[in-house]
Design a binder for these strands. Structure first.
Lengths: 210, 210
DNA sequence: CACCGGTACGTACTGTCGGTATGTCGTAAC
DNA sequence: GTTACGACATACCGACAGTACGTACCGGTG
């Protein structure tokens, strides 16, 4: 007798079906966007009917959330280990930025998470979801820099939002550029410059200008 | 033929009807978003039928573009004169940034232009439209700073995109914050810090020569 | 083995909404 | 007065999200 979990064949089938629906959804949402993707088509690609879809998800938005989570979890693997990697915090933060721009180039991430996420889920719901994913990682990176004294103690939440917005725009620029390689280089240069400007300077200059 | 343009009463009515439709669209798109706004409702608020709507606009997206343009033109008035105002370029640029954040706080601008614009119109079409509006203004401001030597000669297009993205995020943060006054102060502080970091420093930096 | 409860779907239908085709009325030109 | 046309209204179609209900099949119980 099996002492461990007795995963019934039934549940296995069910899980497979659900995964097929999610995969189909990610693909179609990425290609055609939320509005121009029909649930019948999603179901058809997964070789089931709408009945199965509505059994597994609450509706179109529910399916979208599942697709969102799917894309994010896949992304988090790569991103997390880079940021949490060993070495000087400044270096790994920079590496994290570059990695995140890379991630943003993924069509699925860009469309589902960055562009349509806030619109479909509503900004507040999207923010909550992001808390446990990319945004959370980025913020903890910024937090590390502030703690380790690399950044002036700006409000972490706000600064991270600004960075997040800038990086998303950056990725979109690269993705839609006719010459992505050059665009990518330019973007990296600009971002490095911005972040370098934020770095705490040894010379004290409290509210210097004017 | 008449030398003076005789604006017929007919055309006047027509223009009024069109304007009523645009106003109705701006209101409903702002409140419920693009997807959850029905054309019948838009027409009803304008006290006409869908026939009139389709006479004036190519469809739902056409109506959205008109609403987009309406919001942008209203905004441009305030924004343009600030940026093009007299005085030192750095000061007026900073003033422009603050003004733009203010603009972004307008619910209509935030929802129609910032959030749903890229999704509904598609990013490329949105970018083209923005060229003649806020983004264009922001970029010319950045260009001025580079020309006047206040900013290192970073690629203007990219840098402006980054700024644009950061500012939009900033505005969203303020708008959804439970304490908008504090959020606004924090945001201003962060932005000032970022921009200040970008400012060309008179003393040559060890890493950044020239 | 027979029976049964529930899960995992499939099928058929409804309501809403974007879009179209067509009709109508008033104004302006001749 | 007739004609032409612009500015709408009305009626309808097709697509699609969501619902109601039926069904097959698995797993447990006696």
């Amino acid at each position: 007798m099996n002492v461990v979990t007795v995963r019934s064949r039934r549940l296995e089938y069910s899980e497979t079906t659900r995964q097929a629906l999610v995969n189909s959804a990610v693909e179609l949402f990425t290609r055609y966007g939320y509005a121009d993707t029909s649930l019948d088509e999603v179901a058809k690609r997964a070789r089931v009917t709408k009945g199965a879809l509505y059994h597994h998800f609450s509706g179109k938005r529910g399916l979208f959330e599942a697709a969102f989570a799917e894309v994010e979890t896949k992304v988090m693997g790569r991103l997390g280990e880079i940021v949490r990697g060993p070495g000087d915090p400044w270096e790994s933060a920079i590496a994290g930025l570059r990695a995140y721009v890379e991630v943003c180039l993924e069509p699925a991430y860009q469309r589902i998470v960055v562009h349509e996420g806030p619109v479909v889920l509503g900004w507040e719901r999207w923010r909550q979801a992001e808390e446990g994913f990319s945004f959370g990682v980025l913020r903890s990176a910024v937090e590390n820099l502030v703690v380790s004294g690399e950044l002036d103690d700006l409000p972490v939440e706000i600064t991270t939002r600004l960075l997040f917005g800038a990086l998303s725009s950056a990725a979109t620029v690269i993705a839609t550029s006719p010459d992505p390689r050059k665009a990518s280089a330019d973007v990296t240069r600009s971002i490095d410059r911005v972040v370098e400007g934020l770095r705490r300077r040894p010379t004290p200059d409290p509210t210097d200008n004017r």
